[in-house]
Simulated scan of single mutants.
Amino acid sequence: MMYLIIGGAGYIGSHIVKRMYEEGRQFIVLDDLSTGHLEALQAIENNADHFGGKIVFIKGNAGDMSLLRQLFMDYPIKAVIHLAACSLVGESMQKPGKYFLNNVSNTVSLLECMMEYNIKQIVFSSTAAVYGEPEIIPILEDVETRPANVYGASKLMVENILEWYGRIYGLRYVVLRYFNAAGADPSAVIGEDHKNETHLIPILARAALGLIPCFSLFGDDYATADGTCVRDYIHVNDLASAHLLAVDALNDGRSSRIYNLGNNQGYSVREVLNAMEQVSGVSIPCAVLERRAGDPAILVASSEKIKQELGWRPVHTDIYDIVGTAWEWHRKHPQGYDARD
Rank of each mutant, 00 (worst) to 15 (best):
I5L: 15
S92T: 03
I28S: 02
S125C: 13
K54H: 15
L41V: 07
Y75I: 03
S87R: 02
M65I: 15
A79S: 15
I55K: 01
Y75M: 09
N61K: 09
E23S: 15
K98Y: 10
P138R: 06
V130P: 01
Q26D: 15
I55G: 05
E39L: 13
Y99R: 00
S34M: 12
V143R: 00
N103D: 03
K95P: 01
I139Y: 01
P134A: 13
E133P: 01
Y75V: 06
Y117G: 00
A9F: 08
I81R: 06
A85Q: 04
Y131V: 01
S92L: 07
E112A: 14
L101G: 01
S14V: 04
V104G: 02
E23F: 15
V143C: 12
D31G: 07
G63I: 01
A9Y: 01
F72T: 05
F100G: 06
R25E: 13
A129T: 07
I77R: 01
H37G: 03
F100K: 03
S125P: 01
K18Q: 11
E23W: 13
I122M: 07
H37A: 06
Q42C: 11
Y117A: 08
I139C: 06
G60K: 00
A48R: 08
A40N: 07
F57W: 10
S66N: 14
F72Y: 13
E133G: 04
A48Y: 15
F72L: 00
I139E: 03
N103F: 07
G24P: 14
G97L: 03
E39F: 10
E116G: 09
A128V: 06
H37P: 04
E39V: 10
Q26R: 14
E112D: 12
L67V: 12
E39G: 09
Y75E: 00
Q94E: 13
G8D: 02
D49E: 00
L110M: 08
S14I: 05
Y75Q: 08
L68Y: 09
N61S: 14
L83K: 05
R25L: 14
H50W: 14
S34Q: 13
Q70G: 12
I139G: 03
G8Q: 03
L83W: 09
D49Y: 00
N106E: 07
D32H: 10
P138H: 11
V108S: 05
D74L: 15
A40D: 04
K18A: 07
F27K: 04
A84C: 10
G53M: 12
M20H: 10
T107Y: 01
L111M: 13
G60Y: 10
L110K: 00
L68K: 07
L88D: 13
V89P: 01
G132P: 00
V29K: 02
D32Q: 10
E133K: 11
M115F: 11
G53V: 11
